[in-house]
């Protein structure tokens, strides 16, 4: 497991400033969708029983309904678990020396990238749409210099303006403390 006390390749005097995940609204949306999916069979059974109650006593229909319902609920629960794992394992760790980006792309596919704070040249925050504006979540784009991936993004994060300010201040402080960019 990843411990926040033992960051990979920890630099001297490095400390965690912020751990950022996507906004809670993102997982809330998925919870609502899966709640609807869990309740759907109830409506379906009500319609079925009101039309023909003998389906619940048939020699084939009852086992089919039992197995089908069980398989449906297990399937929905598994996909909700997958969805949560995908949300929860994506994170951005902002330290006073670097930004570590962890992206879980499905199962058995994971990208971990780190960008030195002093290389950051430009930070942009974006919020588009009614719900993101009201709930204050959006994207933060960070432009770096001299790396394979020059621009990376924080997606659907809470308070993107505040995160932008944090990164800019850290970059300025890092450059002023270490003008030769040794670390």
């Amino acid at each position: 497991m990843l411990s926040l006390n033992y960051l990979p390749n920890k630099l001297p005097d490095e400390s965690i400033v912020r751990v950022v995940r996507r906004d809670v609204f993102i997982i809330f949306k998925r919870v609502v969708i899966f709640a609807v999916l869990l309740v759907l069979p109830v409506g379906f059974f009500y319609l079925m029983i009101s039309n023909d109650a003998t389906a619940l006593v048939g020699t084939v229909s009852l086992p089919l309904i039992t197995l089908g319902t069980s398989a449906y609920y297990l399937f929905v629960w598994l996909f909700f678990f997958f969805s949560f794992v995908d949300y929860y394992l994506d994170s951005w760790i902002i330290t006073n020396r670097r930004i570590i980006y962890i992206d879980q792309r499905g199962f058995f596919s994971r990208v971990v990238a780190e960008h030195k704070i002093f290389r950051i040249q430009d930070v942009t925050s974006e919020t588009h749409g009614l719900i993101p504006t009201v709930l204050k979540f959006g994207d933060v784009h960070v432009q770096t210099a001299g790396t394979a991936e020059e621009r990376f993004s924080f997606r659907q994060v809470p308070n993107p303006d505040h995160i932008r300010d944090i990164i800019i201040k850290l970059a300025q402080k890092n450059r002023s403390e270490n003008p030769y960019h040794e670390i």
Binding site: M1, L2, S3, L4, L78, Q104, F107, F108
Partner: peptide
């Protein structure tokens, strides 16, 4: 189903934060 569930369980324990 059990195989996939265990895969998700493994990912949470291996890659999740120790919280």
């Amino acid at each position: 189903w059990v195989i996939f569930f265990l895969a998700g369980f493994y990912h949470m324990l291996k890659f999740g934060f120790k919280t």
